[in-house]
């Protein structure tokens, strides 16, 4: 019995060491660090193996894209406010409500098109394999924004422009 327990203990200890080693070998410390810091650009850099030139080019693309992002953001906000105001003050006017909703959806579609173009530009800076992986990660979320990203925003408390 003593030998059995001793052998089981040895086996368990060795298995724990092997499990820990496999965990360590397959983890991504830089990705976890980026998550802890909430640094999306650090994630982009480490997860898509960007060198200095690629990283600088992507930062430049983001900076160029930011003004149009802000403009789209402002227009969508105004459209939402207009639609909500219309619903409150004139709820019976279905034509006006539908028009306001259509304007909002058009703005969202324009915005989706702009961000899709932007991420394709970003992907083009990466290596072909990394670019493909990047697009596979972000495009479905952009296309299915209402279901995949919007629910998470309820937890967000600050604007990140």
């Amino acid at each position: 019995m003593k030998h059995l327990l001793r052998t089981l203990f040895g086996l368990g200890a060795a298995a724990a060491a092997i499990g820990f080693m496999c965990y360590h070998l397959n983890s991504a410390p830089e990705l976890h660090a980026a998550v802890r810091k909430g640094d999306a650009m650090a994630w982009l850099r480490t997860d898509f193996n960007l060198d200095e030139r690629q990283f600088a080019e992507i930062q430049r693309l983001h900076e160029n894209y930011a003004p149009s992002c802000e403009e789209h953001c402002r227009m969508i906000q105004e459209a939402i406010q207009a639609r909500d105001a219309l619903r409150k003050t004139n709820g019976d006017d279905l034509v006006a409500a539908a028009e306001a909703e259509r304007t909002l959806q058009q703005l969202r579609a324009t915005c989706e098109s702009a961000i899709t173009t932007h991420v394709y530009q970003v992907a083009a800076v990466m290596s072909p394999a990394d670019g493909k992986r990047y697009l596979a990660l972000v495009l479905p979320k952009i296309a299915d924004f209402d279901h995949q990203v919007a629910p998470d925003l309820k937890l967000e408390s600050r604007h990140q422009h």
């Binding site: 991504a28 990705l31 976890h32 980026a34 998550v35 909430g38 999306a40 994630w43 982009l44 997860d47 983001h62 894209y65 992002c69 802000e70 403009e71 789209h72 953001c73 969508i76 906000q77 939402i80 969202r108 915005c111 989706e112 702009a114 961000i115 932007h118 991420v119 990660l137 972000v138 979320k141 952009i142 924004f145 995949q148 990203v149 919007a150 998470d152 925003l153 967000e156 600050r158 604007h159 990140q160 422009h161």
Partner: peptide, 22 residues
């Protein structure tokens, strides 16, 4: 962690997300 970062990244880029946050 990757899923968290993709959402965080898109929140920074996507005006629709910015509009919701504002």
């Amino acid at each position: 962690d990757r899923e968290t970062m993709v959402v965080s990244y898109l929140v920074e880029l996507d005006p629709r997300a910015q509009a919701i946050l504002k």
